[in-house]
Design a protein around this nucleic acid. Sequence first.
DNA 1: CCCTAAGCGGAAGGCTAGATTCCGGTTGTC
DNA 2: GACAACCGGAATCTAGCCTTCCGCTTAGGG
Lengths: 195, 195
Amino acid sequence: MRADARRNLDKIVTAAAAVVAERGIEAPMEVIARRAGVGVGTLYRRFPDRNALIAALGDHYVHSLADALRRSEENVPDAWTALREHLTWTVDPGRGALASAMAELPDEVFLDRPDFARARGHWLEMLDALVHRAQAEGAMRPDVTTEEVLALLNLFACHPADLPAAVAARPARFLRLILDGLQATAATEPPTAPA
Amino acid sequence: MRADARRNLDKIVTAAAAVVAERGIEAPMEVIARRAGVGVGTLYRRFPDRNALIAALGDHYVHSLADALRRSEENVPDAWTALREHLTWTVDPGRGALASAMAELPDEVFLDRPDFARARGHWLEMLDALVHRAQAEGAMRPDVTTEEVLALLNLFACHPADLPAAVAARPARFLRLILDGLQATAATEPPTAPA
DNA sequence: CCCTAAGCGGAAGGCTAGATTCCGGTTGTC
DNA sequence: GACAACCGGAATCTAGCCTTCCGCTTAGGG
């Protein structure tokens, strides 16, 4: 592969991640190309269709998800805090709707990409384990399932353009509000200080 | 207005409310017409453009919102419970994305419809008062603004199709999870019983 | 330095989905 | 019974994207 071609490939992936984070998984191919400073033709030469591009992105993203989760678990002793830290990472602007993109992924994307599916499954398992641990440690209300936590997370993840402006502006703040409600008791840690 | 015309008008408004609740404010006109058992032509004769239809719906909805809020305040002594009851009403399936529709409303819709704007403002004021009262009563964390409560509510209100399936299936459950986090202390009322 | 194949950009063509118009055929109402 | 008000929905028009294609450019081996 020629040097300039590789350069462009990188630019495309970077741009695609950004655009998908901002506009969701259905962002027009042309917007991505333009953002990468490249013609649509170049984009299509590299990725025969949208799914190929999304899969490339997803592969990337899912791995960093798993890494981030592992990192949180290592740095933070208690499960609840680790969970909160990880979810906050997830919601970071710039990562934006990527999590959503992963959630929305049509099945076709996974066909012929077992590695991707596996990596995603791995992350889900780790998350599930963390939730259970947090509950076992008594830091998290026990009547909430991992699936529900994910659903709550995905609330942030509908098409970015449709998010309430306030939430889009300060996702971490709102995530925090929501997570506070998942604690076993607010007494353990009183709500963030009164204004 | 001929009797059959009036009948159709009613059918259209009813159908539109249902469809908008399900598919959001941008639901195709034809879907609405079909649901009303009417041709598109009839729809357009009655409402020259989408905004006219939405405004009619909004007018309706905003008044029932205000009524519902007033009712909650009357039936329930403490502000926090009243607030929770009202928000739950809002999120009821069948009302679905109507609240969202109201949130997304482009400004044009309000032009030449000062009554509508006023009614909407009135509801917002009542809600704000209720929030302040709940906080004064010590039942709600004081660092949360009414605007934030609305944003949280609107999280349910992005295009219904984009909602995480789990949330769409049990909106009240998720609203409850979120609202629990807004309480002053979980100690006041422990989280819903362990599974 | 030159030649050639790899690369490139973006105009052109095609498609889908939905908005809107229009008019021949119906149906209340007086 | 006559006529104006109403209907339904086919036909038309748009807008927004996807995807292909091809003439021009450029990296990089010889």
